[in-house]
Computed example of a mutant assay.
Amino acid sequence: MDLKQLTYFVTVVEQMSFSKAAHILHISQPSLSNAIKNLEEEVGFRILERSTRNIELTESGHILYKRAVRILLEMKIVEKEMQEVRMIGNGELRIGMIESAKHWIPKVIRQYEDEFSDMQLLLTEVLSGENVKRSLRQYKTHFIITNQLIDESDIVSIPLYKEKLVLVLHESHPLAAKDSIGLQDLQHEPFIITSAGFQTREDVLSAFASEQLQLQIKYEVERFETALSLILENLGVSLMPENYLADRHEKRLVHKVISSPSLERTVYLTYMKNRYMAPAIRVFLDKITRFFS
Rank of each mutant, 00 (worst) to 15 (best):
R110A: 08
T124C: 07
I145Y: 06
G96K: 11
Q148A: 09
K107A: 14
L127E: 14
V85W: 11
L160R: 13
E115H: 02
G61V: 02
I105W: 13
G129T: 13
E40N: 00
L39I: 12
K76C: 10
K80P: 11
L123N: 05
M87C: 10
T141S: 10
V156G: 00
Y65G: 13
S128E: 01
Q111N: 08
Q83W: 00
E163V: 01
T146N: 08
E74W: 03
L121F: 05
V69S: 05
E42I: 09
E152S: 06
N38I: 14
P106K: 07
L72M: 01
T141W: 02
L121W: 08
Y161E: 13
L57W: 03
T146K: 09
V69C: 07
R46I: 15
E81L: 03
N34S: 14
K107T: 15
K37P: 14
R137C: 01
V156H: 04
D151F: 05
R53Q: 15
I55F: 06
T146G: 09
I105Q: 14
F45S: 12
L72E: 02
I98C: 04
F143S: 01
K162W: 02
N90C: 08
D118Q: 13
E84L: 10
R67I: 05
R86P: 09
S153A: 12
F143N: 06
K80M: 12
M87W: 14
N90Y: 06
V108K: 09
E84T: 06
G89R: 07
D118A: 00
S157I: 05
E152W: 04
M97N: 07
G91Q: 12
L122H: 15
S51F: 04
T124S: 03
E92V: 15
R53S: 14
K66C: 00
L48K: 03
M75E: 15
L123K: 11
I95V: 12
I36C: 04
L149W: 08
Q111P: 09
S153Y: 12
T146A: 03
L123C: 02
L121Y: 05
T52S: 14
I158P: 13
E84G: 02
N147I: 13
E56C: 12
T141E: 11
E163W: 05
R110P: 11
M97D: 06
V132D: 00
R137D: 01
A35M: 05
